[in-house]
Design a protein around this nucleic acid. Structure first.
Lengths: 338, 338
DNA sequence: ATTGTATATTTAATCGATTAAGCATAGTTT
DNA sequence: AAACTATGCTTAATCGATTAAATATACAAT
């Protein structure tokens, strides 16, 4: 096979046992081999271009120095950025990242967890899908270290790094109301995931605080599997409401992108006809004719903290958990009519 | 440790050897174990929730069912999309993907190749960096199967999946000339990578074919490490040229994004003051006030073909190579003033 | 009864590393 | 000189699977 050079080859060439070679190449174990011998072995290793087989090493020592990352979709910029940050941070600590996209599907998420766990990743960072509580419980039961990101299950104690989604939504909607909007709609995804529930709660409580009516007619939920048409239908429905619509809050960047395209096609003007606030950033938003007011998540910090928490958890014998809520930042531009 | 259940545990519980268990659980080896025994073993395996240790399996069989993917940067939508496609396609064939971003740096690319090779990935898909020829030669020498994407080295025979970058650039620039532009600038990255050379050649030959002057003053190159300022300086320089500038061709989506922002800040109107054609797509482009004419790469096909070629190569004893050039598609919108 | 032939199961080597324990050899202490 | 102690290296077990080869058992053919 490839990568022929093994400890054995070096041992043979130098005329010692593989144990000697192993000791010599693991500098930590100073003193187990004489300096001359060590030098000779190291020279031969270099000469043969020896590269240790990590698979064999992992099998023996029980660690792989690999972290698993499960996100909803790498092709979504929010997750792609997280992936990049996690990758860099992991690398800085000597870990490699194996990743997979769950597509928000519990089944794919299960598959990924199994594949990664069977490959013995040392820990997992997961943006969990809907109805995946059993997976999280499984990980706890198996004592596989993990950290959740973006979403979490309030009923299951675990480590996580998330945004204060309630506050984010509250601030966003409050900002719209503050600027005179009275008919504020919200476009969300149809899911029980906590982050989405919190965003909806933030929206509703901001309306309540302003003594505006909180009904179902202005809070529309779209299914994941046909975002595009769902968004159109939802916007149509809101616009058709007898009292009209003068502002729209998008619960995610994907919803905003589809929503804005549709709004443009209807020739509605932002912010005159409709004020807009969206979640997350996106290169796209910078090019919209009316720069978007949006909620900014500290993506870099989220990724870094997640890795940090995971490594902490892995090194502590008791699976100590850490829970981090980041504060959202509302970036005010022109789309909210401020 | 975690994941305690091993073949041995099942063997003990059932009262047979581990070999019997292994045979029973590998259905292909029908007939090695009696049906009743097999049933009992499988039942016990399920009962104990046995999950095979892939690390041990890999060590024995010499394959990991893992593919390595090295791209420039996951947070670039072009590569993120490729990553997603590769991931899905690999999964469809029973492979998991391990990835890393090289940041266009030869050194990081070396690191990744070593890390992945030492983890015994079965094959690699790589968007190679500048000055990484030695890495490619190393892979060939080590007989590690690999497929290059997006770029390749014409002097080193290898499998690859790329766009016909020459034709793409030629078509784009020809299109601008056809629409009456005479002072067409090009913004490229400063790199010797072949795809970029080809894009420049396409630009130059299109100008030649139209008998327009081909000089250095309208072909500007920007360094990777400070794209933003580089783009500004380059555009300033072109605009300052005595004969002026009436069209701009961006060699990548990133260059286009930075370029367009700067052009807007200068209050130049597209396409009146400046006609634009860019490489690649991007959610961002859809929101630009003047929809962008751009070169579309068949990203899905590129990713799928790359996996396909790699699997072919892995299964053929001789490391048979395949080279695929995709045809570019010029999507004409309004920014080119057509 | 004897040999032959499936069939079912076990034994044991193997993948490539790590590492506790054992064994020389040289040097130090009494 | 005998006993002890480092020092330096080897032996051999181990991680958890796979798999060729050996073995045992049942059954059929001679």
């Amino acid at each position: 096979m490839r990568n022929k050079v093994s400890l054995k080859d070096i041992a043979q060439k130098v005329g010692v046992s593989t144990a000697a070679v192993s000791y010599a190449l693991n500098k930590e174990k100073e003193g187990k081999v004489s300096d001359e011998m060590a030098a000779k072995i190291r020279a031969t290793a270099k000469e043969l271009n020896y590269q240790p087989n990590q698979i064999a090493k992992s099998l023996k020592i029980g660690r792989t120095n690999t972290l698993g990352l499960i996100i909803a979709d790498v092709s979504n910029p929010f997750f792609a950025t997280i992936a990049r940050v996690v990758e860099d941070e992991a690398k800085a600590h000597g870990y490699t990242v194996v990743f997979g996209s769950s597509d928000e599907k519990a089944e794919r998420s299960w598959d990924l967890i199994n594949v990664l766990a069977n490959r013995q990743v040392d820990g997992l960072i997961i943006a969990p899908s809907e109805a995946s509580e059993d997976q999280i419980l499984y990980l706890k039961e198996q004592k596989i270290p993990f950290v959740l990101i973006d979403r979490y299950y309030p009923d299951i104690p675990s480590s996580f790094v998330v945004l204060d989604n309630y506050k984010a939504a509250y601030d966003a909607v409050f900002h719209l109301i503050e600027n005179g909007r009275k008919r504020v709609g919200m476009l969300a995804y149809k899911t029980n995931l906590y982050h989405m529930q919190e965003r909806k709660r933030g929206y509703q409580e901001a309306l309540q605080a302003a003594e505006l009516p909180v009904g179902k007619s202005l809070l529309k939920e779209v299914k994941h599997d046909d975002t595009k048409n769902g968004v159109k239908a939802a916007i149509d429905a809101m616009l058709a409401s007898p009292e009209g619509l003068d502002a729209l809050f998008f619960a995610t960047n994907t919803l905003a992108i589809h929503g804005l395209k549709y709004i443009d096609s209807l020739n509605l003007k932002v912010p005159t006809d409709l004020a807009i606030v969206s979640f997350d950033e996106g290169e796209a938003f910078d090019f919209y004719y009316c720069p978007l007011t949006h909620i900014k998540q500290p993506v870099d910090e989220i990724g870094k903290e997640a890795v940090q928490l995971l490594l902490d958890q892995m090194s502590s014998s008791n699976g100590r958990i850490g829970q981090i809520h980041f504060e959202p930042e509302l970036i005010i531009r022109q789309s909210s009519g401020a």
